[in-house]
Design a protein around this nucleic acid. Sequence first.
DNA 1: GGCCTAATGTGAATTTTATCACAAAAAGCT
DNA 2: AGCTTTTTGTGATAAAATTCACATTAGGCC
Lengths: 209, 209
Amino acid sequence: MSKAVIIRLSKYKNIIKRFKKLGFVKVFSDNIAEAIGGTSAQVRKDFSLFGISGNKRGGYIIENLLEKISEILGKDSLQKAIVVGIGHIGGALVNYKGFENENIKIVAGFDIDPARYKNEKNVRIYPIEQLKDFVKKENIKLGIICVPDIAAQQILELMISAGIRGVLNFAPILLRGNDTVVINNVNLALELENIIYFINVQDKEMQSS
Amino acid sequence: MSKAVIIRLSKYKNIIKRFKKLGFVKVFSDNIAEAIGGTSAQVRKDFSLFGISGNKRGGYIIENLLEKISEILGKDSLQKAIVVGIGHIGGALVNYKGFENENIKIVAGFDIDPARYKNEKNVRIYPIEQLKDFVKKENIKLGIICVPDIAAQQILELMISAGIRGVLNFAPILLRGNDTVVINNVNLALELENIIYFINVQDKEMQSS
DNA sequence: GGCCTAATGTGAATTTTATCACAAAAAGCT
DNA sequence: AGCTTTTTGTGATAAAATTCACATTAGGCC
Ligand SMILES: NC(=O)c1ccc[n+]([C@@H]2O[C@H](COP(=O)([O-])OP(=O)(O)OC[C@H]3O[C@@H](n4cnc5c(N)ncnc54)[C@H](O)[C@@H]3O)[C@@H](O)[C@H]2O)c1
Ligand SMILES: NC(=O)c1ccc[n+]([C@@H]2O[C@H](COP(=O)([O-])OP(=O)(O)OC[C@H]3O[C@@H](n4cnc5c(N)ncnc54)[C@H](O)[C@@H]3O)[C@@H](O)[C@H]2O)c1
């Protein structure tokens, strides 16, 4: 199943949750599409792909939908994560409360710099040397890399050796993993460049019309 | 031109710059592909799409390549950006030095909370009321939204009314723009859920083999 | 109960994206 | 100078993703 479909499923889940909070019991593919900025056909196709079905004319029962989607996404249980590199970005993440809505909890931070070992509000920060033990003992599967690019590959390897299975990487370099680990990258400079390009395209289109 | 191609072009540019720093004068499509984790055919196809050509058997002259790509990406000149919401994420961004390599400079921050108006190391933080004037006077085209989700749509509208043309949004909601503005979203919870899904898929595959 | 309408579910068609594969050109060697 | 090798550039092909379009079914109404 492609990454894009799964991202859409997560989006569906989020907005369906919002509908639920508003007191709705049913939704239509139209409602969902509108709310995430897609088409109803795609919503239905995606659902069909995962064997999720609703009621002709009656739409989908929110309760059922959420259950099915959560099952697919594997988010029934709380997912624990760690952050390595408690600088600007890492610090923002360990203090962020929004992940808990999604059943994700950052349980520890790690850094090489002793000045970081003070506890953040809720999350304890440990020396990097303790990562491996901690991850093994707590059976952590998810790691977030917020160290400078120069250190990122080395941290990835440490994580892999500790048994981490999924990584979100903020360092602007290509990490070399292996087939035991899935890596997603967040590259903000790339996002900005992309926006700049499309602004320029728009400008040119306007000039020529 | 699709977003994905442009993202690849940016990646090409970044690694070509790195080759240049290492003293290389030429590169081959193979080298580039290897470095960004793609195929050489795709590198060449992408180049061909933009009319970038090299020398049969001789590869590409780095100097030419960089010039051509920068021209396409519209990054010859410095791009000024502003950040709204100088909390955890916004604070990280205004203190980040890495964007300057990419010819992007965050020139100001804006917040609703007077406690934020102290200057960050290099970037001044202004009351949100001053955004419109500032953006118009300085002719800013690029805005980054780091406010809580509840405030994000309103900030987007303020940005649009001030003349901002491209937005990077960290709030986990769908923003409604118009055709004068291009919006990219960074949704970290979504990224994490995605990773969790693929970890689970891997697990199931292993069990069944 | 029969009719009408509004929704789903999904094959088929289309569009988009990526890969193949190979002719053509250039560099180097003898 | 001719032969060999390497690498580009790109049509052709394949694969993936999206949209279309419509048969099907269920709810509501008279
Ligand atoms: N801050 C931003 O806005 C921003 C934007 C885009 C990308 N990034 C990227 O995100 C990453 C983090 O950026 P930041 O601004 O938070 O950096 P930072 O310098 O504020 O923090 C980095 C942290 O990593 C720690 N560290 C360094 N080497 C380590 C190691 N080997 N093991 C453990 N910890 C180590 C440092 O002690 C520090 O606390 C960088 O790769 C950066 O390029 C940051
Ligand atoms: N911090 C994270 O790790 C993280 C992770 C994922 C998503 N996000 C998202 O990024 C956004 C920012 O998160 P954060 O943790 O930096 O939040 P934060 O609470 O630390 O900062 C938000 C800032 O926005 C300012 N603000 C609020 N309303 C405003 C308004 N109307 N105009 C101007 N300024 C206003 C506040 O004064 C504050 O300084 C949120 O939407 C959050 O959901 C953050």
